[in-house]
Design a protein around this nucleic acid. Structure first.
Lengths: 245, 245
DNA sequence: AAGTGGTCTAGACCACTCT
DNA sequence: GAGTGGTCTAGACCACTTG
């Protein structure tokens, strides 16, 4: 019998659990279970997929290890909500290490046609409409980080219209709430350089001052690049720890 | 028989598989299975520990995920050999990206009493004997990296006596071969600074030139810190990519 | 008390490697 | 072909969370 489930698991060469994981990943990306909500229980899913519970578990554990799901003993299995708000401070250590969230001040917001390099990083065609933002982030009243952001435009239209005064300090929760965009993972590329005159002015540093540069590409649940961001900060405040194994 | 195996698995509050993993980790650290050798088969280990094979498997998978073991389908489960030779280039990109190993030139080698800060990082008492090395690493004939190393001395005595001409370009395989020290993991702390006059001279750069600084602590199988190393390189050649999830 | 995920068992069969 | 790890099953029992 039994209902020929459209076997999302029919991928060739994949183990049963890997195929099931891939299928679940697609259904999550398609919005069947929005971020923060619970999946059906292991029992239900196992019956649905026609496998033993242990096999279904392996699929869930795989997705949990990849950061897509979060399993909570006694409660259920949940689709992970957006990334934590301000992990940018993981790269910088300014005077006060108090977990304070940097205050955000939008310096400029413009709708523009994507330059070639930005379009390529966003996975768009050159010239597609994007939202370009410049903002300064401060700690203890002192400007510390200068950020340059590019957001694809049909998707982020609500932010093109939202009054500047109503913007939040943390962007990712705002993306989720106002645009339904959930940042699920990001890639940060670290480099060192020096500040141009205009950049230096925003940070109250002399032109030519050494700076650390973090070039981020953020991706949503479906794997699309939804944000390109370049952050500059005083190189002397930069620090980062890497575990090698 | 049957020595009352000192049930390393008797830890309270640990699941059976976690306790078994901890016990195996200790036996590996104690040298029962040297790096590169195979552990007994799952069947044998399961019988030894008196658990089902699936439980034993979980223990092995845990240790494999932690990078201590390497499992090879059809061959066996192996204790991972030392870290790859020169992962320092993961942080720098000089002209040629050809996977070339940087040539090493020892600039100085001295037996000294450990300064307080070094002793602390090595987990020694201040004043304990250590080997202090300074070396320059070059690519394509050009000096690129300046390294400052501290090695605890009873342990690395063979390197205190080895003629400089016989040193290898890669240190970790040499530690393993000559001193029986196997580097299993390391922590790299990335920062930024400027070159002092002496440092700049070694790298053929002007004094005050911006540099990236990688401060490494390397640990052996038993978790002891066996090397403290600070590497300096041109800040403009620095790059590193971080995955955030 | 009911429902969830976490641990564990005692098997079966398959895929890979070596000789 | 013998031995290894990889996948999968169909259960049991435990620990945690919530009504």
């Amino acid at each position: 019998m039994t209902l020929e489930l459209v076997d999302a698991a029919a991928e060739p060469g994949l183990s049963r659990y890997a195929a099931i994981a891939a299928g679940l990943r697609e259904r999550i990306a398609a919005g069947e279970w929005p971020p923060g909500t619970a999946l059906p229980s292991e029992q239900v899913l196992a019956a649905q997929q026609g496998v033993a519970m242990a096999t279904l578990r392996r699929a869930l554990e795989l997705l949990a290890a990849q950061g897509l799901l979060e399993r909570v003993h006694g409660r259920g299995t949940f689709v992970r909500a957006s990334l934590a708000g301000a992990p940018m401070l993981r790269f910088f250590r300014f005077g006060d290490g108090s977990g304070e969230v940097p205050a955000s001040r939008i310096v400029s917001r413009r709708k523009v046609a994507a330059p070639a390099q930005i379009a390529q990083r966003l996975g768009l065609a050159k010239g597609e409409p994007v939202l370009h933002l410049l903002r300064v982030r401060s700690l203890g009243g002192k400007p510390r980080l200068l950020e340059d952001l590019w957001l694809p435009l049909p998707m982020f239209q609500p932010l093109a219209e939202l009054p500047i005064a109503q913007w939040e300090d943390l962007f990712y929760p705002m993306y989720a709430q106002r645009c339904g965009v959930h940042v699920q993972r990001a890639t940060d590329e670290i480099g060192f350089g020096t500040l141009g005159a205009a950049q230096a002015a925003h940070l109250a540093l002399p032109a030519g001052h050494p700076c650390a540069r973090v070039a981020r590409r953020a991706h949503d649940l479906a794997g699309r690049c939804v944000e390109v961001r370049t952050t500059l900060g005083d190189a002397h405040a930069f620090h980062y720890t890497v575990q090698i194994t």
